[in-house]
Simulated assay, not measured.
Amino acid sequence: MRKILVTGALGQIGSELVGKLRKTYGKDNVIGADIREVEGIRDAGPFEIADVTNGDRLMEVAKEHKVDTIMHLAALLSAKAEVVPKIAWDINMGGLVNALEVAHELNLQFFTPSSIGAFGPSTPKDNTPQDTLQRPNTMYGVNKVAGELLADYYHHRFGVDTRGVRFPGLISYVTPPGGGTTDYAVEIYYEAIKNKAYSSYIGKGTYMDMMYMPDALNAIVDLMEADPAKLKHRNAFNISAISAAPEDFEKAIKKHIPEFELTYNVDPVRQNIADSWPNSIDSSAAKSEWGFKAEYDIDKMTKDMLEKIREK
């Protein structure tokens, strides 16, 4: 039975991943950790306050709970990272190397996500290959490329069982947007229900890869359970389910809310980030090496998002 430490447990991915892991591996076998706590969090299962930039504290928590796996999710996202790049470096890179050191010393399996932000304006835009040129022009992208290389290094140099995916924009009804460039694809559903209108900060015709959170969570578990002998890439697998622009979400929403109206008020910072990312990526390596498969397309996701938000 696994014993898993999840950093960034209160973030967009962590808040849902912890619940899924507890259903799969048992409530007491998944330890959530974050820099803060919220009321009632400890009622759901083990939880520790831990700043990932404090390596000693991470080591202390891992030893105390005798974990065999770290899923390191703590990070500052793309749009926020551009506002405070030095802080982003300290959290995203300092936290990652601390977590990798814990995995190395205690011989733990390790997961951390990369992102389509690891690509840049010189990367092929359409059907972006698994192995391709990566020259991002954002601090978040630089962090992610360095993180991919660092995870590879710890595997090749120290034998750490590191694994990871390049997430596209993640869409969820559970946790509010956290400062990512693709957050419009979450906000649009809330505004469609509340106001039947949305003003997008990303311009028309801007295609980016997206994925519904249930598919993202399944991908993490499937990769961590995969036969290591079949993993040629091991870290930073391209995965995606949907390539969409704002007007594609508009079309999908109008099937359920015909009066919905989409307008545009483009944010230059986030638009520049979006323009540097691929239109679509090739997930064939993940499919062939560990059986990645997405269940939700934009229409199935839209139906579920609108239903769940209305329930909330």
Rank of each mutant, 00 (worst) to 15 (best):
M1P: 09
M1N: 12
M1W: 05
M1Q: 13
I4Q: 01
I4P: 00
Q12E: 11
S15A: 15
R22T: 07
I41M: 12
I49H: 12
A50N: 09
D51L: 10
G55D: 05
R57E: 07
E60Q: 15
A79R: 00
A79P: 00
N92C: 09
G94L: 05
G94F: 04
L100W: 01
A103D: 01
A103F: 04
A103Q: 02
L108R: 02
L108H: 02
F111K: 02
S114T: 09
S122H: 13
T123K: 03
P124D: 10
P124S: 12
K125H: 09
T128L: 07
T128P: 07
P129V: 09
T132Q: 13
N137P: 02
G141A: 08
N143D: 15
N143M: 11
V145I: 12
A146V: 13
G147H: 01
Y154P: 03
R163T: 06
V165I: 14
L170W: 03
V174C: 11
T175M: 13
G180H: 01
T181L: 03
V186K: 00
E187F: 12
E187T: 11
Y190F: 15
A192L: 07
N195G: 10
Y201L: 06
K204T: 05
T206D: 08
L217W: 10
I242T: 06
K254V: 03
E261C: 07
T263V: 10
Y264A: 05
S284D: 11
A286V: 05
A286P: 04
I298S: 02
D304W: 04
